Amino acid sequence: MPAGMYSVESLSTGDVAPCERAEFWREHIASYQSRMGYRYSRADNFRGETIRQHTDAYQLVRFWSDEIEYTRTTRQVRQDPDENYRFLLPLSGDIVLRQDDQEARLTPGTGALVSFGAPFECLQSASTDAFIFTIPAHEVDGPMNRKSPLAAGLDLRRGLGRVVGSMLNGLYEERDDLTDPQFNAVSDRVVELLCMLAVGDDRPDVPGHLAQVEAMVRRYVRGHAADPELTGAEMAQALGWSLRQVQLALQRVGTTPRELIREERLRLVRDRLRCAAFEHMTINDLAYASGFSSASALSTAFRQRFGLSPREMRYGSR
């Protein structure tokens, strides 16, 4: 399978003998997650199932299993570095997550972000059914202006949280009818909403007006990112607010109008690099069509954001 292609894979411990299931599960999880410890309540006949959807950018796994405890120690963090985040969302059962002197008890309707870049303990009750969504670190650290473990419970029962849960469930239900660009595009939006949800949870005293301004600014920038003349002042005027209002709304989530415009332009280029409909466009063409002043300006910003050049992303995904 070419690198970057969307794939769906299913696995069940029912495919092996009962006495082999615990080791089978450990090897299976270790094949796509970083190094962890496993403690089983009944290792002689452990039962578990996974359905894994992934590209080179994101991974969504729905899993069901018997009671188990996962741990990631300081030594494992050092020996097998992994700065990426996982978003945990139980659909049944409960999960207790401990990290960075915080504890979150997750039940259906609550979720949490956990960093694999720091030690943690994750205790899962029997017959737990849950999603675990892998998110590249740069997709969280940049938008949230932070780099630290997160273990706070997030409410997925109403409002923005419910939208996030519905989108993850939609990705799962439509798993057999998605393409690589489609899976990545929806995953991008899920992460964006998760960051907004997490920041809002950390700052419940932020006036609702600023949150509304932020949401509308993001929609406007997404729709006009390719305009090379787009600026903070221009978007403020178009939306009927002062530039100061726009700046304050974005400041609360750790960004600025200029940074948001650049971020949306980079996402636009990335999506086009992954899409066959834009294969005829050179990197130079993509730069100008996405609001950048030159191919070199695009390449510099793109490498800083995604860790590789536009050309490397285009040919590395084939």
Score class of each variant (00 low, 15 high):
residue 4 G to F: 04
residue 4 G to K: 00
residue 5 M to T: 12
residue 14 G to A: 03
residue 16 V to H: 03
residue 21 R to W: 03
residue 23 E to M: 11
residue 26 R to P: 01
residue 27 E to K: 06
residue 29 I to R: 14
residue 31 S to H: 02
residue 33 Q to L: 08
residue 33 Q to E: 02
residue 34 S to A: 13
residue 37 G to T: 11
residue 37 G to E: 05
residue 38 Y to L: 10
residue 41 S to L: 02
residue 46 F to E: 00
residue 50 T to W: 02
residue 52 R to L: 14
residue 54 H to E: 10
residue 54 H to I: 01
residue 57 A to T: 14
residue 60 L to D: 04
residue 60 L to S: 10
residue 64 W to I: 15
residue 65 S to A: 13
residue 68 I to K: 14
residue 70 Y to L: 15
residue 71 T to N: 08
residue 71 T to Q: 03
residue 71 T to Y: 01
residue 72 R to W: 02
residue 76 Q to D: 14
residue 77 V to C: 05
residue 77 V to G: 01
residue 78 R to M: 11
residue 79 Q to M: 03
residue 80 D to K: 03
residue 83 E to I: 05
residue 83 E to A: 12
residue 84 N to P: 00
residue 91 L to D: 08
residue 91 L to W: 07
residue 95 I to D: 15
residue 100 D to F: 14
residue 100 D to N: 15
residue 101 D to G: 07
residue 102 Q to R: 09
residue 103 E to Y: 13
residue 104 A to K: 08
residue 107 T to L: 02
residue 109 G to L: 10
residue 110 T to S: 12
residue 113 L to H: 07
residue 114 V to G: 05
residue 116 F to W: 11
residue 116 F to P: 01
residue 123 L to V: 11
residue 127 S to Y: 00
residue 129 D to F: 00
residue 129 D to H: 00
residue 130 A to V: 04
residue 130 A to C: 13
residue 131 F to C: 12
residue 137 A to F: 09
residue 142 G to H: 09
residue 148 S to K: 12
residue 148 S to I: 08
residue 153 G to V: 06
residue 154 L to V: 08
residue 156 L to H: 07
residue 157 R to F: 10
residue 161 G to P: 05
residue 163 V to A: 13
residue 166 S to T: 15
residue 166 S to N: 12
residue 167 M to P: 10
residue 175 R to Q: 11
residue 180 D to I: 05
residue 182 Q to C: 08
residue 183 F to M: 08
residue 189 R to G: 00
residue 189 R to Y: 12
residue 194 L to K: 07
residue 197 L to R: 12
residue 199 V to I: 05
residue 205 D to C: 02
residue 206 V to K: 10
residue 209 H to C: 06
residue 213 V to S: 12
residue 215 A to H: 09
residue 223 G to I: 10
residue 223 G to T: 13
residue 226 A to G: 07
residue 229 E to P: 02
residue 233 A to M: 03
residue 233 A to Y: 07
residue 233 A to P: 10
residue 237 Q to H: 11
residue 239 L to M: 14
residue 246 V to Q: 03
residue 247 Q to Y: 06
residue 249 A to C: 04
residue 249 A to T: 07
residue 251 Q to M: 02
residue 252 R to E: 04
residue 258 R to P: 03
residue 263 E to D: 14
residue 264 E to L: 04
residue 266 L to G: 02
residue 267 R to A: 11
residue 267 R to V: 09
residue 268 L to Y: 06
residue 271 D to V: 07
residue 278 F to H: 15
residue 279 E to Y: 10
residue 286 L to T: 06
residue 290 S to C: 15
residue 293 S to E: 05
residue 296 S to F: 02
residue 297 A to E: 10
residue 302 F to D: 05
residue 306 F to Q: 09
residue 317 S to Y: 10
residue 318 R to A: 09
